[in-house]
Design a protein around this nucleic acid. Sequence first.
DNA 1: AAGATATATCGTAAATATACGATTAACCGA
DNA 2: TCGGTTAATCGTATATTTACGATATATCTT
Lengths: 117, 117
Amino acid sequence: MANPVKLAQSCGPSPQANGEPDLRPVEGKAADEELALLARALGHPARVQIVRLLVRRETCICGDIVEELPLAQSTVSQHLKVLKEAGLIRGEIDGPRVCYCVEPHALRRLKALVGSL
Amino acid sequence: MANPVKLAQSCGPSPQANGEPDLRPVEGKAADEELALLARALGHPARVQIVRLLVRRETCICGDIVEELPLAQSTVSQHLKVLKEAGLIRGEIDGPRVCYCVEPHALRRLKALVGSL
DNA sequence: AAGATATATCGTAAATATACGATTAACCGA
DNA sequence: TCGGTTAATCGTATATTTACGATATATCTT
């Protein structure tokens, strides 16, 4: 093996990581519900902090998140679940740990929706 | 009186409607909490709809909001209170009714915070 | 196979959110 | 001053959120 060094792990390319623009409308009932869903996911300081953490280090830190937050591991796991269910982050199993990254599309989408206000 | 016609009512200028830019940082603990607060306020479809309504018509419709939403008057009033407490909208008493408008600064601030992600 | 480590899930308690109808408060017009 | 209208608040039932410790699960290491 040419490179036995453990690389900084990162989630593989996002499933919908085709460079195509998001064609969904930014207004209307569906958009309102989408925005509400995304906003609700960001509606807790710990989750904002988590997203910021994942955006800053483009390499996805896994359980380091727990160390950064003043919360129990189980609570952090719950927050991660909320963010995952909203589609804002993605987790990828990497051996015994899980590697989280932001979903750039979701973030872009959120910005577009908020921008439409 | 030169113009006895009832003008489309609109909230007066916002208290902090000085054209000055918002100097608060978009990152850090305080910013995280601010973003969480604003996001949480948008975390319900009815509230997104209300904000959209108020943005679209720059003249602030008052109780017409109740008619637009499929919710009881008291429920709409509760949602308005949430938005008001988050600083996203402002209500001004106009006779027996109340005139709501968005707070452009808060909206700009939200966009800046989301944009910083 | 056994132990160590990382993460998710379960169970639970307390707090908050959501919705409604009923009531109250404020104001206008007759 | 008396009704009528508008909006807020109250009381309440139900659902969701948030937090924790305990437990389960899955993977690595030895």
